[in-house]
Simulated assay, not measured.
Amino acid sequence: MLELDGVSTFYGGIQALKSVSMKIEQGEIITLIGANGAGKTTTLMSISGVTPPREGEIRFLGKPIHTMSPDDIVALGISQVPEGRRIFPYLTVSENLEMGAFLRKEKTEIQKDMDYVMGLFPILAQRRNQPGGTLSGGEQQMLAISRALMARPKLLLLDEPSLGLAPMVVRQIFEIIRKINAENRTTIFLVEQNANLALQVAHRGYVMENGRITMEDRAATLLTNENVKKAYLGI
């Protein structure tokens, strides 16, 4: 579904990604783990067109997208849930969800998806008329994921969904991630510092260090890898 081939991305003269190559198959949950500053968020930003690569290619369903604008990439079927959630704080929950469906026209299907995400996160139905900024951190994360789903993506990019959340809320979020993948066959690319949880929910994983992919394997195998355990699992 998605292929990165020799992708190098720069911020001015600073190289953040160094010839990164990855593949994601349809229906998979893939996780990318690594330390702060390793290049994980830049990888997602390169895919979504926010920080286009200077070298290499990114292909989605066989189509090169590395020169496309972010809105055209969303229209193709890629949605990103950014780090820090970035909901619209002064818009209501319902209005935030409507913004997620901004590029869509079919009102009946949009309403169906609105009902679906509120079924995934019933608290959003209760808060539908509240401004997004009045929600708790966990509720805002639920809203950010739901807003991305309103675009009906084929590929969902999740950037640090556990950041700043209580452990109980984190587990709820990860269960929903698994459910979205299982029910809708939505392919998920998960960037996460909580490597233990990420590898538990993913099918395959990549390890990134200093802008390079240093390891890839089945998630279950990475969970038992001594180097991964020592560096990222605190074992």
Results as ranks from 00 to 15, higher is better:
124 L>Y: 08
118 M>I: 11
114 M>D: 02
98 E>T: 08
103 L>I: 06
115 D>F: 10
113 D>E: 13
91 L>M: 15
120 L>N: 08
121 F>N: 12
101 A>E: 04
107 K>C: 02
126 Q>G: 08
98 E>I: 08
103 L>F: 05
93 V>K: 13
100 G>E: 04
110 I>A: 01
90 Y>F: 09
105 K>F: 00
104 R>I: 01
96 N>C: 09
119 G>M: 06
120 L>M: 14
120 L>T: 10
109 E>L: 02
102 F>S: 07
93 V>N: 11
109 E>C: 01
102 F>T: 04
117 V>P: 12
95 E>W: 07
110 I>T: 01
123 I>A: 13
94 S>Q: 15
116 Y>H: 12
95 E>P: 03
121 F>I: 06
90 Y>E: 11
109 E>R: 03
118 M>S: 12
121 F>L: 08
105 K>R: 15
126 Q>D: 09
94 S>L: 15
99 M>G: 08
95 E>D: 10
115 D>M: 12
108 T>S: 15
96 N>I: 04
111 Q>F: 07
122 P>I: 00
125 A>S: 15
97 L>V: 02
116 Y>T: 12
123 I>C: 05
92 T>W: 07
119 G>K: 13
100 G>K: 00
96 N>F: 05
95 E>M: 04
112 K>V: 01
97 L>T: 03
97 L>K: 04
113 D>C: 00
112 K>G: 00
125 A>F: 13
126 Q>E: 14
104 R>L: 01
106 E>L: 07
118 M>G: 10
107 K>F: 03
114 M>Y: 12
114 M>Q: 11
104 R>W: 01
116 Y>C: 07
97 L>G: 03
123 I>M: 09
91 L>D: 04
102 F>P: 03
119 G>I: 01
90 Y>I: 00
98 E>M: 13
97 L>M: 05
105 K>D: 09
119 G>A: 07
115 D>P: 07
121 F>T: 05
111 Q>G: 06
97 L>A: 02
93 V>R: 12
118 M>C: 15
112 K>C: 00
106 E>A: 08
